[in-house]
């Protein structure tokens, strides 16, 4: 999953901050539960679970990011 985020174009990477959580850790499980996720891999954008049990095609991931992007607000 992290690889697909790394592969995003630079102009997209510049407007996002990426956090990766590991379900082997208590911190990762806590995050997983807070997002009410059920499966892996999962992608949340702005605290909202957007993709679950899927690595989205790059176009879909970019579209989902742009749908939530507000200039002057990095999130």
């Amino acid at each position: 999953m992290a690889e697909s985020v790394q592969a995003l174009p630079n102009d997209i990477k510049e407007i996002i901050e990426v956090y990766e959580w590991d379900l082997r850790t208590r911190e990762g499980i806590q995050r997983f539960k807070r997002l009410r996720a059920k499966s892996l891999p999962s992608v949340a954008l702005n605290e909202e679970l957007v993709f679950e049990a899927i690595i989205p095609p790059q176009e879909e991931l970019i579209q989902a990011i742009m749908d939530r992007y507000r200039p002057n607000q990095r999130s």
Binding site: L23, R24, F32, K33, A37, K38, S39, L40, A53
Partner: peptide, 13 residues
């Protein structure tokens, strides 16, 4: 039981 799919992913560990 809703997290069982995620647990299945963790079984490899």
């Amino acid at each position: 039981e809703s997290v069982f799919p995620a647990m299945e992913t963790m079984l490899k560990h």
